[in-house]
């Protein structure tokens, strides 16, 4: 292996270790199947190594990773729909089912996210998972930057109202305090 190749190998491994868990969680927001999520993310990385080595070690890799993972998730969902005629709507699994939250507040925040309108939730989740700019998010989801901004604002506003309505508006202070102890 040449020096370039070795550097590139390490950078690739570094990107994998940085993003793998986050991308699997991101994929899970579309595909409620752990194994499928892992397969999708692993395949995206393999593709980079084989077909797009020029991305390795650049800022652009993040944009590519998130965009590709989402596209592949949507393809997977289309395939799954074709094969399971018995279950046309894919029975929306509940996000909270197998997780016990450490605090009431965290559980409520999760519910608040689940409660967002689909498009709004999609934009918000991509932003929170990737920390990309509005501009990058707009490019990745193929929508306008203005729409990204509107959806982000809407997401926070709706989540806050949800938490307020459920009486945990002040609980965050307590949570914060206990965690910081």
């Amino acid at each position: 292996m040449s020096t370039d190749k070795r550097d590139s190998y390490y950078l690739f491994q570094q990107a994998f270790e940085t993003w793998y868990g986050t991308l699997c969680n991101y994929a899970y927001s579309y595909v409620r199947d752990r194994n499928a999520c892992e397969d999708i993310v692993q395949e995206v990385f393999t593709r980079i190594w084989e077909d797009r080595p020029q991305l390795i070690g650049t800022e652009g890799i993040r944009y590519y990773l998130f965009t590709a993972v989402r596209n592949n998730c949507i393809s997977w969902l289309r395939q799954a729909k074709k094969h399971s005629a018995a279950d046309p709507d894919g029975a929306q699994p509940v996000y909270i089912e197998h997780r016990r939250e450490q605090t009431e507040y965290r559980a409520m925040v999760r519910q608040a996210i689940d409660n967002l309108p689909p498009r709004c939730r999609e934009v918000f989740l991509l932003s929170r998972f990737s920390n990309m700019t509005y501009k990058e998010i707009a490019g990745s989801l193929d929508i306008s930057e203005k729409t990204v901004e509107n959806q982000m604002t809407k997401a926070l506003k709706l989540m806050r109202s949800f938490l307020k309505d459920h009486g945990v508006y002040l609980a965050w202070a307590l949570t914060n305090f206990l965690l910081s102890k």
Binding site: Y20, N25, V109, W172
Partner: peptide
């Protein structure tokens, strides 16, 4: 503060499903 806390906590809860990165690598 309330909004920032929603923001921080949401970033936390959305990625709390564990995946075995080493095994995948």
């Amino acid at each position: 503060d309330a909004l920032r806390n929603v923001w921080d906590t949401s970033g936390d809860v959305i990625r709390d499903m564990p995946f075995d990165t080493a095994a995948a690598w």
